[in-house]
Simulated scan of single mutants.
Amino acid sequence: MKTLTLEEAALFLKMHPEVVRGRAKAGIIPGVKAGKRWVFIEDDLVAYLRSEYACRWQALQVGHEEKQLCHSLNVEKRGGSVSPHQAANVLDALLQQKIKPKRRNSMTD
């Protein structure tokens, strides 16, 4: 198992070191900050690259339904959401409801 520094991982991924650092900090790229330095396992970076490649490659396969394996492209929409236009109409109706004014005490001092 080979470990890489931040700079080596950036070269391996063909990214700027600050981009790699930010993505590792966010948990997007697998890595750990051991002490003051980031450490990456080469096998984990290979797996990360392969996972990115699969979805993007399949996204380019427009019209080839049988070859699409990326779950985000095969999702069926199942209701439950309201369109912005419907939400605006409901909000307008609620705002136009008349509120009865409070009765004031008619007694004077």
Rank of each mutant, 00 (worst) to 15 (best):
I28S: 01
Q61N: 12
I29W: 00
K33H: 04
F40A: 03
I28C: 00
L95K: 12
S106H: 02
S83Y: 06
Q97W: 07
S83W: 08
T5I: 08
H64N: 14
G80K: 11
S106V: 04
C70Y: 11
P30K: 03
S51V: 07
H71I: 02
I29C: 01
E7K: 14
L94D: 04
P84C: 10
G27F: 00
D109W: 10
E76R: 06
K2G: 10
V39Y: 01
G80S: 11
V75T: 05
G63P: 05
C70D: 11
S72G: 12
T108Y: 05
T5P: 04
S83Q: 10
V46P: 09
H71E: 04
K25L: 04
V20N: 09
P30V: 03
G80D: 11
S106L: 05
S83C: 09
A10H: 13
R56N: 10
K100R: 14
M15D: 13
M15F: 15
L91F: 12
K25E: 07
T5Y: 04
E76I: 03
K33F: 03
H71D: 04
W57S: 08
P101L: 10
L60Y: 09
G79H: 09
V19T: 15
L91D: 09
A26M: 08
K36W: 04
I99N: 11
L13G: 11
S81R: 13
T108A: 06
S106A: 05
L49F: 10
Y53C: 08
E52R: 15
Q86T: 12
W57V: 03
R104H: 06
C55W: 06
A24F: 01
Q58R: 07
L49A: 10
E66K: 14
H71G: 05
L4K: 06
V75W: 05
A59H: 09
S83G: 14
V62M: 03
R50I: 08
L13A: 09
K25F: 03
V75P: 00
R104C: 07
N105A: 07
H85I: 10
K102F: 07
Q68N: 11
G31H: 00
V32A: 07
L73G: 06
K77W: 10
D43L: 12
V62P: 02
K100A: 14
K36V: 03
D92G: 01
Q86K: 14
H16G: 14
G35K: 06
L73E: 08
A26S: 12
G22Q: 05
R21H: 08
Q97T: 11
I28H: 02
K25M: 02
H71M: 02
H64D: 10
H85P: 00
P30H: 03
A24P: 03
K14G: 13
A34L: 04
L60P: 01
E7C: 07
K67F: 09
G63L: 02
